[in-house]
Design a protein around this nucleic acid. Sequence first.
DNA 1: ACGAGGTCCTGCGAGC
DNA 2: TGCTCGCAGGACCTCG
Length: 275
Amino acid sequence: MPELPEVETIVRDLRPALLGRTILRATLSHDDVLRDVTRRRLLGGLRGASIVDLSRRAKHAVLELDTGRRLVIQPGMSGVLLVAGEALSAADAKYAVLRAALDDGRELVYRDVRRLGTLLLLTEAEWRAYDEALGPEPLDAGFTAERFADRLGRSRQAIKKVLMDQRFVVGVGNIYANEALFAARIDPSRPANSVSPGEFAALHGEMRRILTSAIRSKGTTFRDYRTGTGAKGNFQFELLVYGREGEPCRRCGTRLTLTHLIDGRSTVFCHRCQH
DNA sequence: ACGAGGTCCTGCGAGC
DNA sequence: TGCTCGCAGGACCTCG
């Protein structure tokens, strides 16, 4: 669910409440969010650890502990983080997967309705390998249009699929891929190696503009996503194509097309504006 | 090695 | 009203 702007929003909202806090104890409701770690190792690794930092990498939240380990939270489609000062709401309690009691009486909660999310507890070396396997951050100052074109332009895969491939560039998921391709007027189904340098420059600019704007709006809320303060985001009101299939294109009035033929994900575009 | 497609989950809305 | 089906902000894995 959450893409870069949503995770960035959550991390910014929660960082002040978490820095310096110690985790007294933690509980896990389901094991199916674990992959490379056992429940015992995860909970043992959290107990007594202090939180040194909370940051974002790609679409993931990273809790750095004073033990040198990092708790990496991949929210998947429906995961969110919150810090609760009081009893959880019924819905929060029902879908809470990880609950970590903090030394100030509050509680850090990972809530995930579908539990497609994943929790990882990584050593320093494991973190380095994890980080290196991910592509560059799209909003980094050094991530130029040239680097973008060079990374993505070698593939014969559809440009939309490549844009969402976290090995090439991180943080862009289905919503923002649709929006960026519309803004750059590029047909999502075109092979990436057919996209010209000028088109890559436009896509690079639009992707960064849209991600930045979405962070300013605190993300896009369709269903599960909430900011770190529990509010809905506002970028859903600024979407030009995602969720608007059958409605008129904002630029030319043509009815927007929906297809699932690219990577099995819903793709909405204007067949007249995007080539 | 690459690309297509399935898999993990639950909830919700559409259609019958 | 009560079903069944398809789809949903992601990531990983297995086929051919």
